[in-house]
Simulated scan of single mutants.
Amino acid sequence: MNKRIAAWMFVAVAAAVAGCAPSLSGGAYSREQVRKEQTVRLGVVQSVRPVTIEGTKTPVGAAAGAAVGGIAGSEIGHGRGAAVGAIGGAVLGGLAGAAAEEALTRRPGLEITVKLDHGGLIAVTQEADERFEPGDRVRVVSGGGVTRVTH
């Protein structure tokens, strides 16, 4: 297998890993959250701060990188050289795969601080797929261990 094929395999696996990342959007619900009662509180946005939501860190990215790196590394030399190349390629590929998975699934987010109508100040971090401004009236929806801010 040449390096070009190994590189394309790595890109394909990385794209698949990125597609498996769960949504952290205020408008996305998991199957477990559907048809369950949620608590709704009303309030006013006090501040909005951009944040970065780190990407996923599953064994999939490292394993895919190790497999591609091992195959690519085995092309180096013959006999013992190929075995050493495969091991080195697998280690380096695993590290690169884990880093690529985290980078591909990293998302922009917002930390939204809300003054609740019935008292209290809370902050909720979620994906930056909606625009919020200080002074906006919002709903804070909580249930199943998840809280989101919506208009």
Rank of each mutant, 00 (worst) to 15 (best):
A99Y: 05
G88P: 11
V13Q: 00
K3N: 15
W8P: 02
A103G: 11
P134C: 15
A14N: 00
V34Y: 02
V34G: 00
G69L: 10
P108M: 12
T125Y: 01
Q126S: 03
H78M: 13
K36L: 09
R31M: 13
V124R: 00
V138S: 03
A62T: 09
T56L: 02
V140T: 02
R139N: 14
A72L: 08
I122W: 11
G109T: 01
S142E: 12
F10M: 11
V138E: 01
D117Q: 10
A96R: 09
T56R: 06
P134V: 15
R4C: 10
Q33G: 07
T39R: 11
G69M: 04
R106A: 15
T150C: 00
R131L: 09
P59L: 08
V84N: 07
A63E: 04
G43K: 03
G143C: 15
A63H: 01
G61A: 07
Q126P: 00
R4V: 15
N2F: 00
G120K: 01
Q126I: 02
G19N: 08
Q33N: 13
L95C: 11
M1N: 10
A63Q: 05
L121I: 13
P108F: 12
G145F: 10
G89Q: 07
G120L: 00
T150A: 01
T147P: 08
V138F: 07
T52P: 04
G97N: 01
A103H: 12
A12T: 10
P134T: 13
S25D: 04
G144V: 14
R106F: 15
G61L: 04
G85H: 00
W8V: 15
N2I: 05
G19P: 13
E130D: 13
P59F: 04
T56K: 06
S74I: 06
M1Q: 10
T105V: 14
K57I: 13
A128N: 08
N2V: 02
A12H: 07
D136S: 05
S25N: 05
A64H: 00
K57H: 13
A100D: 08
G73P: 00
F132M: 12
A16C: 08
Y29F: 04
A18F: 01
A103N: 09
H78D: 14
A64M: 08
K57F: 13
P59C: 08
Y29Q: 06
V124E: 00
F132R: 12
V68M: 12
Q46D: 09
G81A: 15
V114C: 12
T56Q: 05
G119M: 12
F10W: 05
T125G: 06
P108R: 10
V51D: 07
V44T: 15
A62Y: 03
I112C: 05
R131K: 13
I87G: 14
A99I: 06
G43Y: 03
A14I: 06
E127C: 03
R49I: 08
V114D: 01
V140W: 04
A28M: 04
G135F: 11
S47V: 00
T125S: 14
I5M: 10
G144F: 08
R41V: 03
A72C: 12
E102Q: 15
G43C: 08
A99L: 15
R106C: 15
K115L: 07
M9F: 14
S142C: 06
V68K: 01
A86I: 02
G73R: 02
P134K: 15
V141H: 11
V60F: 11
P134N: 15
A6L: 09
